[in-house]
Design a protein around this nucleic acid. Structure first.
Lengths: 147, 147
DNA sequence: TAAACTAATGATAATGATTATAAAGAAGTA
DNA sequence: TACTTCTTTATAATCATTATCATTAGTTTA
């Protein structure tokens, strides 16, 4: 089923006039199949086996290409490096304060917040970003034990 | 009135056993008085006149101290450097896609989103983060003109 | 198909924000 | 005063990301 998603993505790229190189194919595939939200370096390391000569710059370049075509979203949290998320349906993220794990969850869009914000500030609103922070079940267990 | 806020902050620091140095005083004062959400470097530049010998490291160190005592929040957006926000009431930010301006707005907390996220993912929820993106009135005008 | 043009890759250097280190200074305490 | 601890300063180190540029590959056109 992620096959279909990948094919769709490739079609989107082609329609945007972006060439499908083996590297791009591999990066996309990894982003889609991976349940995590990898950093550029993690992607680089993961594909090192298949592409021993691939440069880090290629990863960054292509992530930017994907971002520009709207296929991929860049997530910046407090930590040093950005994470990249293949955009499927609209979803939000919940992030574990302890281990940094990121889990997706769905929630109806927060239009009323956008409206209020627009009304109060006079901005034309385009989008919003929401993240929830907490402790994941696994870390909750180990925190228990530590007591 | 920001006098009171500053005094409160100094009391908070003292209670946490943090010494009030002239540099810390100045950084706090700047953060409170400034309507913007400055980067570390902007703070550094702003205080250069009064503290010609102050090191950038001092700014970073003290911002970390303030963050740890809960006086200051660190905001990371897509761009390269973090921004720092003196915490007064709970508020959200709306950010202009064109000029990067950040404006505060108030909105009742999104508890129901936290509840849903907790229910779906099994996380214990601590907090959330919400930002709205759009075009500020000034930039909307210049975009009009450009047409 | 070959030549010409354009885009993508890879290696490496450059940038820039942030952090680490270590010496000197200031404040706090006995 | 002597001692300890925290803070500042200057500087070097780190690390993610971007820029440069020569090389390669793909596409277009004649």
């Amino acid at each position: 089923m992620s096959e279909v998603i990948l094919k769709d993505a490739l079609v989107t790229l082609k329609e945007s006039g972006v060439r499908i190189t083996p590297q791009r194919h591999a990066i996309l595939e990894y982003l889609i199949s991976s349940e995590m939200h990898p950093t550029a370096d993690e992607i680089y390391k993961a594909l090192e086996g298949d592409f021993p000569n691939m440069s880090v710059a290629t990863v960054y370049n292509n992530l930017r290409v994907f971002r520009n075509t709207g296929l991929v979203k860049e997530l910046t949290y407090g930590d040093s490096s950005s994470r990249f998320d293949f955009v499927t349906h609209d979803h939000y993220h919940i992030i574990c304060d302890h281990c940094g794990k990121i889990v997706d969850f769905h929630h109806p869009g927060l239009e009323e917040v956008e409206h209020l914000a627009s009304h109060v500030t006079g901005f034309q609103v385009n989008s919003h970003r929401l993240e929830v922070y907490g402790t994941c079940p696994e870390c909750a267990v180990s925190v228990q034990k530590a007591k």
